[in-house]
Amino acid sequence: MTETAGPPASPVPTVDLARWRAGGPGTRRETAAAVDAALCATGFLLVTGHGIDADLRDRVRATARTFFALPAAEKQPYATEVGGRGWLGPGAEANGAAEGTATPPDMKESLSFASEEPTGNPAVDAEWFLPNIWPHQVPALRTDVQDLLAALRALSDLLLTLLAEALGAGPDHFTRHTAHPTWGFNINWYPGTRTVGEAAPGQYRIGPHTDFGTVTVLDRQRGKGGLQIWTDPADGGTGWQDAPYVPGSLTVNAGDLLARWTGGRWRSGRHRVLPPPSDAPAEELMSLVYFYECDPGTRVGTLADSHTYLRGQLAAINAQGTT
């Protein structure tokens, strides 16, 4: 009897952080090896046992949805540009530009937050640690987002500790540079075709790109117009493919700083978010995305200053005024 081959194993493993934390040396080595292999191949992981409360994430989504449903005139006072704090409206961002691709603006809206606790250095604080903006129409958002941000920062440092182990380095190899880090947090709303119209050629909910920081932690919803990741055919990959989805898990990807920090051993995970699907034009998704970075001025690989690089990449994807 000829056996039918099953689907190929996903290049994106699911890592149980609770098991890794509680495990003995063998379990930890096994987990570290799986993480290293995944970041070498795709730059992506799924994590379970992360401890981020599902009800909290649901509340953030529900409250943000109330804001996004407001008329544009009520959202306009909170309008900002990429890298700022507030509302990124239609046409504000074009992520494909970060990799040098001329692309139409992304088909999304975002509520954008960032690091705000001052360092005491006036120049650094004026650029990277400004107060966040909280829409008065949704007062519950502030408490829930702040609770979520505290949990996401703790998780990101835990992930960097695991990644140091995967690299064979000391546990604080990365986290000694996150005493007062910068970070960004986006609540991305991907509405259906009725709101955003039909996609133009080369237009996506988010265009192809890599993230800019150390690790990105993503809480996403399953959808036809959802996340895709890139595996390079030159290395045996298949090009674009739907990202694996495990209910309750979080998606983690390496960013540009982490790739540079490891001398290119680990890939910065290239990805995109598909436009609203033609067979489900009303599909609406919302993602919670935490971009973790490092302390301002950190030397990363050949970069003398991590944040000069970050500022340049943020400026590249700013599509404000181009539509």
Score class of each variant (00 low, 15 high):
301 G>A: 09
272 R>C: 11
245 Y>R: 04
236 G>K: 10
276 P>E: 01
236 G>E: 08
287 S>T: 13
289 V>T: 06
244 P>D: 00
238 T>M: 06
235 D>M: 02
253 N>L: 04
236 G>W: 07
297 G>P: 09
250 L>D: 06
291 F>W: 02
272 R>T: 11
258 L>D: 04
263 G>S: 14
241 Q>C: 11
253 N>T: 05
267 R>A: 13
247 P>V: 14
288 L>H: 08
255 G>E: 03
280 A>N: 13
248 G>C: 09
254 A>N: 01
289 V>W: 03
286 M>V: 10
255 G>L: 03
317 I>E: 04
300 V>C: 09
274 L>I: 01
308 T>V: 15
311 R>D: 04
238 T>V: 14
290 Y>M: 00
304 A>S: 07
308 T>R: 15
256 D>R: 09
316 A>V: 09
263 G>K: 12
261 W>F: 09
275 P>K: 03
285 L>Y: 02
234 A>H: 12
268 S>W: 05
235 D>C: 06
286 M>T: 12
289 V>G: 00
311 R>F: 01
293 E>W: 00
257 L>F: 06
313 Q>E: 14
241 Q>R: 13
315 A>I: 00
286 M>D: 08
245 Y>I: 12
256 D>G: 04
306 S>H: 04
282 A>E: 15
243 A>W: 03
289 V>K: 01
275 P>R: 03
234 A>W: 02
304 A>R: 08
308 T>E: 15
240 W>E: 12
279 D>E: 06
259 A>D: 01
244 P>S: 07
241 Q>T: 14
304 A>F: 00
242 D>L: 10
300 V>P: 06
270 R>W: 03
298 T>P: 01
237 G>A: 11
309 Y>H: 14
256 D>Y: 00
303 L>Q: 13
239 G>Q: 15
289 V>P: 00
251 T>C: 13
245 Y>V: 13
260 R>W: 07
282 A>V: 06
295 D>W: 03
265 R>T: 13
283 E>C: 09
278 S>G: 02
266 W>R: 04
269 G>K: 11
285 L>G: 00
238 T>I: 07
275 P>M: 01
271 H>F: 10
274 L>G: 02
281 P>L: 14
236 G>V: 05
284 E>F: 11
313 Q>R: 15
307 H>A: 10
252 V>P: 02
234 A>M: 03
291 F>L: 14
287 S>L: 02
271 H>A: 11
293 E>C: 05
242 D>V: 15
241 Q>N: 01
